[in-house]
């Protein structure tokens, strides 16, 4: 599984951090930071949930 984030689309509301704190954080300006771009499959549900909740569609999960 691969995760990518689009930092120029991110609106910084932190939904991803709430959903999957082990994969995402926010920098000092509130912009998304990817903590792990290729986590093992135990993180898949969290990653997909974060992607679907992200208000800016800034998170992509690919196989």
């Amino acid at each position: 599984m691969q995760i990518t984030v689009n930092t120029s689309a991110c609106v910084g509301a932190g939904q991803c951090v709430m959903t999957a704190e082990d994969l995402f954080d926010q920098d000092d300006d509130g912009i998304v930071m990817l903590l792990d771009d290729s986590p093992d499959s135990s993180h898949e549900a969290g990653a997909r949930r974060a992607a679907s909740l992200c208000p800016a569609r800034a998170i992509k999960v690919t196989d």
Binding site: V11, G12, A13, G14, V17, M18, E21, D25, Q26, D27, D28, D29, G30, I31
Partner: peptide, 16 residues
């Protein structure tokens, strides 16, 4: 919008 919004998101982030 995004430029102004980003000037405040840091203080309100999940991290903060």
């Amino acid at each position: 919008h995004l430029r102004l919004r980003r000037s405040i998101t840091g203080r309100f982030s999940a991290k903060s």
